[in-house]
Structure formats: C-alpha cells, structure tokens
Design a protein around this nucleic acid. Sequence first.
RNA 1: UCCGGGGUAGCUCAGCUGGCAGAGCAAGCGGCUGUUAACCGCUAGGUCGUGGGUUCGAUCCCCACCCCCGGAGCCA
Length: 441
Amino acid sequence: MISHPLKIDDAITLEDGTHVNLQGWIVRLRKHGSLTFFDLENSKSSIQCVVSRELLKATDGLQSLLKPEAAIVVEGKIATRKDNPQLPPDLICEYIEVVGPVIKPMSPSPRTADLDASGLTDHKLTNQHMYMRNPKIRAAMLLRHELLGFFHRWFRENDFVEFTAPVLTPIPIYQDKTAIDLEIHGENVFLTQCVGFYLEAAIHGLDRVYNIGPSFRKEKSRGRRHLMEYWHIKAGIAFCDRERMMGVVEDLIQQGVAFSQNLRSLISTFGGSVCKPLPEGPFPRISYREACGLISETTGKTMQFGSSLSPDRQNVLGTRFDTPFWVVGMPRTIEPFPYVIDPDDDELTMTADLLAPGDYGELLGVAEKISDLAELDERMLEKGREKDSRYQWVRDLRNLGAAPQAGFGLGFERFLRWIAQGYHVRDFIGFPRMFGRKIHP
RNA sequence: UCCGGGGUAGCUCAGCUGGCAGAGCAAGCGGCUGUUAACCGCUAGGUCGUGGGUUCGAUCCCCACCCCCGGAGCCA
C-alpha cells in the first residue's frame, strides 16, 4: 500500500506532546483576542487547532489568511484539552502554512452549510462543484462508493464478467425522441439509453456479463425518480429464463440490503435512514393483471389493462408491501420489442418489475429476450421498426446460435435513494443532470 | 411538454392595495484567553430576473421572454 502522511484520525490518538504535521481545511474559525480556534478537517475526521497570539504575530499575514475553507499545512503538538479533557485532544499550532488561501469567500460556507435548510436547492445545484466538500454531499458520495463496490464484488463472486459497453450507439431502445442525439460523420447517433443489445452480443462469448455505466434519457420528467444521466446496472445471462433471473436478482437485492445495514452512520450523516432489513426468501409477487385490480379497487378509479404503472400507481402498490415486490408480466403494448411474449398469454411479456415499498417506485426490471428471428421481426413490425436498418446487427445475432437469455437493469441512484430512504435521486450522484434544468456545472 | 408556485444584498427571506429599499446570516474593520453557528461594536453592500407597456411616478399593475422549484405524463 502506498504510504500516506499522518492522518488526522491517527493524530488524535497520540500522546500529549507528540509533534505532528497535518494537512486539511479550516472549518468553524473562532477568533478571540489572543487565542484563535479552528477545526482542521479532511474527509475522515477533524481536530481542534489552537493558535496563540505570538504565532499570529510571528507569521506574516497569517491573521488575514486564516479563514474558513482555507487549505493549510500545520505543525504542532498534541495536547489534552484544557476546558474538557474528555474530548479529543487539541493541536497546539507551532507553524501554519496556508497553501490554498481563500481568495473569494463563499456564503454560506459550503463546508458547513446546512443543506436541509429550505430554499438552498437551487443554490446548491448551481454550486455543486463547491459543495462536494459538504459533509452531507460527501457522505452521499461515500455511500455511492460503498454500494458501487458492493455491486462489483457481488457480480464477480457470482461469475459475471464485467463487459464495458459503448456509450455511443446508433440505436436507442425506446423512441428516438427520448434519446440524446448527436451527429457524427453525417450520421445520427445516440448516447446509450440501455446497453442491453451489446450485452446480448457479449453473452455469446462470456455467458454471464454485467455493465455498470451511465444511461441517458431525455424523458420530459421533473420528478424525484428521474435523471437525464443516471447510472445503470445491467446484467445478462445466457440460457436463462425470467424465473431464474428473478432468483438471481432476489439474491443481489437481499445481499445489498444486508450490506447496507453496516452503513447506518454514513447514511445518517446526510439525514437518511437505512431501509429495513429484509426477511429471508423470495419477494412477494403479483401479476400485472392483479396490480390493475388492486389499484382500481384502492383508488376507486379503473386502471385499464395496457396502461403503465405510473408513479402514483406504483405508490398505491408500495403501501401494500413492506419489502420489495414483483409485478410480473407487463403488457406487450408498453414494453419494447426485444422482450419475449408470454406463451400462455399473448397480451403479456416475459418481464417482471421490482418495485420498492413505500413511494420509492421501480428499482429494476427483468426480461427474457427474444432469441428467435421470426418472433423478433414480428415484434419489430408491431413497434414500427421493421424497416429500420440500424437494427440489422441485432437481427444478425438471431441468425447464428442465438441462446435464450434473460437480463435485468437497475437504476443505481434509485436504488441508493431507496436504501437511504432519500428524497430525490439527484442527491445520490455527484453532478446531477435533470430534464428542465440547465447543465451546469 | 403541460399545470401550479417563485426570481428583491454573497445566502435565506420580509416589504409595497404604485411615492427615497429592509432584516438575519456572510463579508470588511476594531475589541476580547477556552471557543466550537463564539461574542460585542462599527462599516460597506442593490440594474428589486430581462425587455416592453400603463402612469406625473413601477420592485409593486399589464404583456412577452429567460431562469428556478414542486407536481403530472413517460421511464430505471
């Protein structure tokens, strides 16, 4: 392991009188006449530093350089606190170098601003680059880091190969108008909405594959569950059907929730609370038709067969469960063309959506993919894509040893939002891109 | 895209049924030896989102546009 300079969390365990050299940022500066206090902070911990009048006078310009947010290097010795020996020790400063001065102070100070305060939403998003140092943002980013690590470990432990699919693609999976397009070499190409087609190809060489990367959708949505750019966890398995894939997903979610129980203090840092531990065993499931009935009955308004599970309908179902639950078999009219039609009910597809309890909505979708070319052509015709030559290579895959396969796709920020019982998916990505908001920074 | 709410100091907001623009916090200066949202005093800070209209006079009323927030439809 590469060596680190002494860290603040190590320093506070040292004996009185030990000389240390620390780096970090100033927070909560308290200036008195001849004594100045501040907390020196880095990503993991902080220590209270004490500066005497003598040091301030001896160092040119130090008085005016000591400001909240300044990046400094400080030397001094550890000392038990005079006011309260029970608290972690002070650092009595003997030398301070301001390496990153405060040229233009910001208000509120992003390192200490309370982001729960009302009205800061736009200010925070406009200054997202400055707020990366805020403890709440930092904790949310650390949660993201922890769970991204979990997903990679889980996939690798379960024999999935990480396949890094392209972001530029000639073919959107949904309508072209919800894809972000750009022109290259005179051709229209898109930022990926879903890497599913590329995983279909990869499966024929690698059996079990996954991809974690961004997906882009220009859906005209301003809700709390949508980002224009979100991280999409996709996986596919050859010779797999819906039933088996649902079992795979259940294990993934069970373990993800179990893992997250250890992240309680991180999650509480940004005001979240960990979702409840899950009971063992498979998640409850209802059919799409049952969901229609249940929603009609609960709301008193008839939900027609073929209408989609809109957020308010998902919430109606969400109140009925306290674990994630499946809605199995979405209608063929609302699902994209590559998904298999249910052999027992040709109005339905071999799909299953996993919804979170409460108002967190859809976490992921499972689908069996069509491997038969004639069936694929029929579905492309049905969706008006039969003359679309861009999909020729997707058809080619069905011409040469196409294996039956199933896959799933999970919205990473939605998953985080549910795990931490958060407010908005934008709180779980470093630089959120949302429909209806200018892309900045 | 549609519906609703909003845009006033660096930040959060008050104000005005049309008559010289306000507070708290932040900032700058001064004071203070145990503070931790330190405290006390002083100072400075404004194209009232942009453009047009009505009016003797518009931050306020009207129109258009821009930007933001919340929700809807669509989705993961």
